[in-house]
Design a protein around this nucleic acid. Structure first.
Lengths: 131, 131
DNA sequence: ATGGTCCTTCCAGCCGCTGGAAGGTCAAGC
DNA sequence: GCTTGACCTTCCAGCGGCTGGAAGGACCAT
């Protein structure tokens, strides 16, 4: 299976697959003509990566997840802990963005949004927010 | 005012200030010895940038905000629109991360997290989620 | 033989910095 | 006057995770 088909099968762009090979996440064999040749196992890894990435795991987390995936003797605790950590990071990010959104909302509310130059948003940015 | 003091005054690292100069967000003059020399105006711009960045505006948005800031004839509508767009982007990101968190939570709940190798998270990633 | 579609490698760029190397400048203390 | 140390300068490289493009080889159908 060459890279084009692997891309179609896994849902990842060919460019991304080459990149994943470069950083050692997949190791396709090579055909006589130099083309990459993806077997079942490699396709599985690629699909796995596509899924894990879509859940927001970093590539390093993906690397660890792949290790656990191919380790029959893994403890599910390890997977869970990894996922928990990621979830925690996502939640923190959400909280951070939530505070941001609130601040922005408040500022937008106080900006007239008309032809006049006065604007609470600029006031905040310049530190003229008092008054 | 040299870059070290400008950094202290604005709250931005000196490296960042140099970078901002490189991309044309600030234009400090130079002293005879080649050192950057920041006047009041430049310090204001740096503080403005620090604030705007902390509200999550991209550097391109910051550039536009600085333009509006120094345009006495601006219409506050323009600032508001820019901020609205940014807020919208933040909200979308929050929604996206919220969906992510929910999915992760559900998966984590279904993973025993013990010594056994079976794990709903890995099942999801491999596409074995049915059953 | 020709054309079109694949594949290969390599290099560069996105964003917003950040680190480090190599060297110039300045102020204080001996 | 000389050294030390803290500043400053430029330049280059790297982070994550790709993405685009150029230049050239391979394959397949006509």
């Amino acid at each position: 299976m060459n890279i084009g088909h692997a891309a179609e099968a896994s849902g990842l762009p060919a460019k991304t697959i080459r990149y994943y090979e470069e950083i050692g996440l997949v190791r396709p064999s090579r055909a006589a003509n130099g083309y990459r040749d993806f077997g079942e196992g490699e396709i599985s890894r690629l699909s796995f990566l596509a899924q894990a990435r879509s859940l927001g795991f970093t590539l390093e987390e993906c690397r660890r997840l792949l290790e656990l995936y191919s380790d029959e003797g893994r403890a599910s605790r390890e997977v869970r802990t990894l996922a928990q950590g990621h979830l925690e990071a996502v939640r923190e990010r959400i909280a951070e963005l939530g505070r941001l959104a609130q601040t922005l909302e408040a500022l937008i509310d106080r900006c007239p949004g008309d032809d006049s130059p006065h604007c609470a948003i600029l006031d905040e940015l310049t530190g003229d927010a008092r008054r």
